[in-house]
């Protein structure tokens, strides 16, 4: 055998800081750092991976429309009540970061007002002290009303807010910029859109170091391979020196996995579907995985810990 082959990468993925402690002007108990890799997933002999991939528990401001019973019963009484649901994740499951989806703002799911959602965020920030990811309802017009109010309610807490899309990013970028948050930029399995959108966002003055890419994923058996390869290609481009691609990835693992037919076919199978979707995407370079079932989260967390044991035998 010849010498060990080491790739000479040009740059590292940027590090995004989510959450602000008192020292940074916020009220979180800790900061979650994501990104920063200077090599491909877990090749510690070649570069550094200073921050472990993190798992965010997904919650909803209402009883979520499309979650199966298996998930509802995993959370028990707090399911659908965001404050006690959040507390359960933090207290019982040691969640280090939460991802709240404001589905209730959607015109079809209750049409909650911007004030209501902003009020919820203020209450949630008091209830739990972990960093937050906050997602709109997916209706562009409504999100443009709700998310600015939400950003303001969480001013200085350095949340991660989503999502900016190619034809609707300006309102969100402006709010995120004004209130000191980070942003999620969504690009449906397309590297060029991801680049363009990141450039558009940074042109508005939000630093690339404040952007997390959502490459949009498919679950195991449902197009997982597209996301897997898009993430590998994007990460290779980032490591090779493309600044506009050097952002961490977020993957909505729970959302996709629990849609799979197999996940709903048999009790227990959804957990495995969520777990293996996460496994593959962790190996493709995912930095934040938004997940739903506590057992799938626990197993994925153990796996990540094992992966980060660099000098293990």
């Amino acid at each position: 055998m010849a010498e060990v082959i080491l790739e000479k990468w040009q740059q590292a993925v940027s590090t995004v800081n989510i959450g602000a402690t008192r020292a940074d002007g916020g009220s979180r108990s800790h900061v979650v750092k994501v990104g920063g890799e200077s090599t491909l997933p877990f090749l510690f002999s070649e570069g550094s991976l200073p921050n472990r991939p993190v798992i965010a528990f997904e919650l909803c401001d209402i009883v979520p429309a499309d979650w199966p019973q298996e998930l509802a019963s995993a959370y028990g009484a707090g399911f659908g009540d965001p404050l006690s649901w959040a507390q359960k994740c933090v207290k019982e499951y040691q969640a280090k970061i939460l991802c709240l989806r404001l589905q209730g703002a959607h015109p079809d799911f209750g049409n909650k007002s911007a004030e209501e959602e902003a009020g919820l965020i203020s209450a949630l920030l008091k209830k739990v002290d972990v960093p937050l990811i906050i997602l709109g309802c997916g209706d562009d017009a409504k999100d443009n009303l709700v998310l600015p109010a939400v950003c303001q309610a969480a001013k200085g807490e350095r949340c991660l807010i989503g999502e900016a899309v190619q034809d609707n990013y300006k309102t969100l970028v402006a709010s995120v910029l004004a209130d000191g948050h980070n942003i999620i930029a969504q690009s449906p399995i397309d590297i060029n859109i991801a680049k363009q959108l990141n450039i558009l966002i940074s042109d508005m003055g939000l630093a690339l170091e404040k952007i997390v890419i959502n490459p949009t994923i498919g679950a195991l058996g449902y197009g997982l391979e597209y996301a897997y390869s898009i993430m590998e290609r994007s990460r290779l481009a980032a490591l090779a020196g493309d600044k506009t691609m050097a952002c961490p990835f977020i993957a909505y693992v729970g959302q996709e996995a629990w849609r799979a037919k197999e996940a709903r076919a048999e009790a227990g199978q959804g957990i495995i579907w969520e777990m293996l979707t996460a496994t593959a995407l962790i190996q493709a370079g995912a930095d934040i995985l938004v997940m739903r079932h506590p057992l799938a989260v626990e197993k994925a967390n153990n796996y990540i810990e094992e992966l980060m044991r660099t000098n293990g035998v």
Binding site: F42, M308, R309, T310, V313
Partner: peptide, 13 residues
């Protein structure tokens, strides 16, 4: 037998 990451490195290498 090795840790998972060490194995990934070996398989990659």
């Amino acid at each position: 037998k090795k840790s998972i990451s060490a194995r990934i490195w070996d398989l990659t290498q």
